[in-house]
């Protein structure tokens, strides 16, 4: 029963977060322009679209977004359009924003989710190494590297890595178009497409993994070191349980709990990494789309993409909330 309560509470919190994001979107994309005397409708209407005259487009968008309504009424129309994914038409691409996002979302998901999992694993594996060599050179080196990943600009190291592995050693493909095109010039389909896409994404995924594991590694290590001196570990040792079993079974399982909590905060960081990596590696994902939108000052694209990125983050957070009780049995009773 209390588990149910925990879950309802968490889901409610995440829905509130989503609601906050919608309000925030509204403030940025509707209220701010209005304050500065810019008609938001102007920002949403391309000069031409499928040969339709601009006035007709304005009218159509007014109907959809209620852009001519007063702010308070407009909010509900706006919220409805976001919740139903009516995100407007990109001015620079001249396509519905949602179809642009649909094409790019899987790519970003393919980047984010594996690197999230891999970086957590890396954080734990290196953390275990540190814990078992506490205070020795290996531990100090690993911990220092982890702290440094926090300060090394992802975009800088990314370029170096891309140059070295992609252009210099030629281990990984550097061009997506080439990667997913077969030798006779046709775009690959089916399994072959996904295999080659993944081959192309390997370097970026590994890179995001390496730049984002640091904080969780430090967290896991410090927690593990603290646990090493805790009562239950002493008791386990006194019971003659093998040291390695204590480390790999008991310490790991306990120290991983705050790491999972931390992932929630790291998500914001991860998406920043994704924007850079997509830009550097030329990956057509949500982050690069956002940069394109910003370069062209394409408001519908910016708004829609930002909303989807935030929504994606909220969904990952919620997924974490849902698996959390499996990791920490105590959570139900908090």
């Amino acid at each position: 029963m209390s588990l149910l309560r925990y879950l309802t509470k968490r889901i409610a919190e995440r829905i509130a977060l989503l609601f906050g994001i919608i309000i925030f979107n509204f403030i940025i994309f509707q209220v701010l322009p209005t304050i500065y005397g810019v008609n938001p409708a102007e920002l949403y209407v391309p000069l031409t679209y499928k040969g339709l005259p601009r006035s007709e487009l304005v009218q159509a968008l007014d109907n959809q977004f209620g852009l001519n309504l007063p702010l308070d009424e407009r909010f509900f129309v706006y919220m409805k359009s976001l919740l139903t994914f009516h995100l407007g038409i990109s001015m620079s691409y001249q396509q519905p924003v949602i179809s642009l996002i649909e094409a790019r979302f899987p790519v970003t998901a393919l980047l984010v989710i594996p690197s999230l999992i891999l970086s957590t694993i890396l954080a734990i594996v290196l953390g275990l190494y540190s814990i078992s060599r506490q205070g020795k050179v290996g531990d100090v080196a690993v911990s220092f590297t982890s702290i440094m990943t926090y300060f090394i600009p992802a975009f800088w190291l990314g370029e170096i890595v891309l140059y070295f592995f992609g252009f210099y050693l030629r281990i990984f493909p550097t061009n997506l178009a080439e990667a997913i095109t077969s030798s006779n010039g046709h775009t690959l389909v089916g399994v072959a497409y996904w295999v080659d896409l993944l081959k192309f994404l390997t370097l970026p995924i590994l890179f995001i993994t390496v730049i984002s594991y640091g904080v969780r590694n430090i967290l896991f290590r410090n927690n593990g070191v603290e646990l090493m001196g805790s009562n239950f570990v002493n008791y386990l040792r006194a019971r003659g349980i093998d040291d390695r079993k204590i480390l790999y079974k008991h310490i790991t399982r306990n120290a991983v709990i705050p790491v999972v909590t931390r992932v929630g905060i790291d998500i914001a960081f991860l998406f920043a990494g994704v924007v850079f990596i997509e830009d550097i590696f030329n990956i057509p994902g949500l982050g690069r789309l956002l940069v394109r939108g910003a370069e062209n000052l394409d408001v519908p694209l910016l708004g829609g993409d930002f909303y989807i990125i935030s929504l994606f983050a909220v969904i990952i957070l919620l997924a974490l909330d849902l698996i959390y009780p499996l990791i920490d049995p105590r959570v139900k009773y908090e």
Binding site: L17, I21, F24, I28, G264, I265, I267, A268, F269, F271, A272, V275, F276, G287, L290, V291, A294, L302, G303, D305, F306, I309, S310, A313, V314, L317
Partner: peptide, 12 residues
């Protein structure tokens, strides 16, 4: 704290 910061920065 939870909202993706860099995308927000770009949008703003």
């Amino acid at each position: 704290l939870l909202i993706p910061g860099l995308p927000l920065l770009i949008v703003l």
